[in-house]
Design a protein around this nucleic acid. Sequence first.
DNA 1: GGTGTCGTCATTCTTTCGGATGATTTTGGG
DNA 2: CCCAAAATCATCCGAAAGAATGACGACACC
Lengths: 147, 147
Amino acid sequence: MMRHLLVCGVVGGVAIALLQWSQYRFLVIDHSVEIYGALVAAICSAFGIWLGLKLTRRRPVEVREILVPAAAPFVRNQERVGKLGITPREMEILELVAAGLSNREIAERLFVSENTVKTHCSRVFGKLGAERRTQAVQIAKETGILP
Amino acid sequence: MMRHLLVCGVVGGVAIALLQWSQYRFLVIDHSVEIYGALVAAICSAFGIWLGLKLTRRRPVEVREILVPAAAPFVRNQERVGKLGITPREMEILELVAAGLSNREIAERLFVSENTVKTHCSRVFGKLGAERRTQAVQIAKETGILP
DNA sequence: GGTGTCGTCATTCTTTCGGATGATTTTGGG
DNA sequence: CCCAAAATCATCCGAAAGAATGACGACACC
């Protein structure tokens, strides 16, 4: 703001100097005061309008981020999956376990024997440090490898 | 905008008129041109600044709200809990089941016998239409009675 | 060709879970 | 005070889950 006032004053001074200078430089005609006054008024008004527009433009938009409950799309933490050494097949079994299926149902859905499912379960339980399927599911969700 | 220009012109005209009028009204002194020019410049600049501020104030802030996904704080769907007839104690057991605890651990934590825990489990499983604890947890989360 | 990983399957055994049922105690409201 | 709901505990039994172990074939990699 102070800078704008300074600029305004400087411009005004220059305008005055121009006026005085031109008074001796050109023909002095009647009503010259009105003409010069109008000139100064026009210039300063234009400057004021420009200043107003500039001030308006100085804060264009304020972007306000609003936290809204939204279902964040789940992305599996593949890094930790790899770090734990969980194979794709084991992930598949783990997902079905989390879905609430029994070993038999999982075996039927994947066209393998129930013993195979139990083997996979045991392995993934060991890798997750779980002793029960519910615990395995809980740990998996906390770790970010299950939604 | 047009109105502002009109106001500007009128003010300029009035200023000129004032200038001319005062020229015959008061003493004509030397350097009066500078003084009047400065006056006009000051008035018009003030007007311009006022105009700028007014324009600035006309649209104070343009707020653009952006929806950002946030972790929605879990609120239990008490309506469905009541509709299913799940008692507070059963909810407590269900939460511990979802946390991955075994019946024995739940019994120890709640200072009740394992049989009691099993009874509560059976009841809540029946109310949820589940046959296994993993399935019960899954259904509870889908229904909104567990986070 | 040897090695390692992955997926598969089996057997045995123990633990846990879940269903069914009955009984007792506590508690809150009419 | 009485009733109903809730919470507690028990017993029996079958099903499911889980641990431990061994084995076999497919496949990739060096």
